[in-house]
Structure formats: structure tokens, C-alpha cells
């Protein structure tokens, strides 16, 4: 595939898939798991360790472990090689997550782009999970960058 047609493909994939919502799941925030996570990370702030603290809450990145069942939408085109590697995560904390909260997560394709460097062209697929509590309040957004090598 030449560079021009590859670019056209990427443009078309972006147009068709960016913004598509493709998965929904619920997750219960459990006190013991919130504490064990914070403790394993070396946390020292009682807000994240002591369930008796008036502001007890989940560690900022706690929602990053909430994996939905599906990584990509059904019928998503095969772009790049292999399953992809984890390129990193961005977490935005909108409000505290409390013990016992049941969060509803919706997953969308937030972005698709490519970058070319010394090791060739890499394709980035950004999967966004938005977590809302029972009151419908957005509490956390997690962007996960999946990186695949262009074929």
C-alpha cells in the first residue's frame, strides 16, 4: 500500500469510527480493593487509606483497572499489525469516587492517528472510558492509547 492510499484509509477510518460508542459496563468500587491499591502504590495520604476519613475516596487512577469486555468495536477495520501495545493512560479526575459507588462506564473511540519515526509508522487508537456514579455525575475519564505498527 502506498503512502497516499494509506493516508486515505486512515482518514476514512477516522471519519467512520471516531466518536463511536461501543461498550457499556458497571463496576462496584470496593473499600478493601481501594485501600489495597493505594497501599501498594506507597500512598501516605489518609484520604486514600482510611475508610473512616471524612473524605475517603479512590486513588486518582483507580478506574484504570476497569476493563470493559471489548477492546474495539464490532466490525472495526483491521488496521496495523498484532493486538497492539499499551502506550499509556491519561486519567482526568472530575469528582471523588466513594466506597460502594457503582459506576457506569461508556467506552468510545476518542481518536485515531498515526505518527512516523525511526522505527516506521505507528498507529494510535485512543479508547475513552467515561465513568458516572449513580447520580449520573461524571467522576472519571480514562484515555487509553493502544499502539499498533502500521503494516
Amino acid at each position: 500500500m502506498n503512502q497516499a492510499s494509506s493516508q486515505q484509509d486512515m482518514t476514512s477510518v477516522r471519519q467512520d469510527w471516531v466518536g463511536v460508542e461501543f461498550d457499556w459496563a458497571t463496576f462496584e468500587m470496593k473499600t478493601d480493593e481501594m485501600i489495597e491499591w493505594a497501599r501498594a502504590c506507597g500512598e501516605t495520604d489518609a484520604r486514600f487509606l482510611d475508610p473512616g476519613h471524612h473524605d475517603f475516596q479512590a486513588h486518582p487512577g483507580f478506574t484504570t483497572h476497569c476493563m470493559s469486555g471489548r477492546v474495539l468495536p464490532e466490525n472495526f477495520p483491521k488496521i496495523g499489525g498484532g493486538f497492539g501495545i499499551d502506550g499509556g493512560k491519561r486519567v482526568e479526575v472530575h469528582a471523588p469516587i466513594r466506597a460502594g459507588d457503582v459506576l457506569t462506564a461508556t467506552t468510545t473511540i476518542a481518536d485515531i492517528f498515526d505518527k512516523t519515526g525511526r522505527s516506521g509508522t505507528m498507529i494510535f487508537i485512543v479508547q475513552r472510558m467515561e465513568f458516572r456514579n449513580a447520580a449520573g455525575e461524571l467522576v472519571s475519564t480514562v484515555d487509553w492509547k493502544m499502539i499498533k505498527k502500521a503494516e
Binding site: 501498594a40 506507597g42 495520604d45 486513588h59 487512577g61
Partner: peptide, 15 residues
């Protein structure tokens, strides 16, 4: 795990 490394950095910030 990558998500643990992020948690370690968050704990450093709180400290």
C-alpha cells in the same frame, strides 16, 4: 504494570 507506575507517581505527588 503500567497502571501501577501511574499510581506510584500519584502517591509521590501526594507525599
Amino acid at each position: 504494570p503500567g497502571i501501577m507506575s501511574q499510581g506510584l507517581l500519584a502517591a509521590m505527588i501526594h507525599k
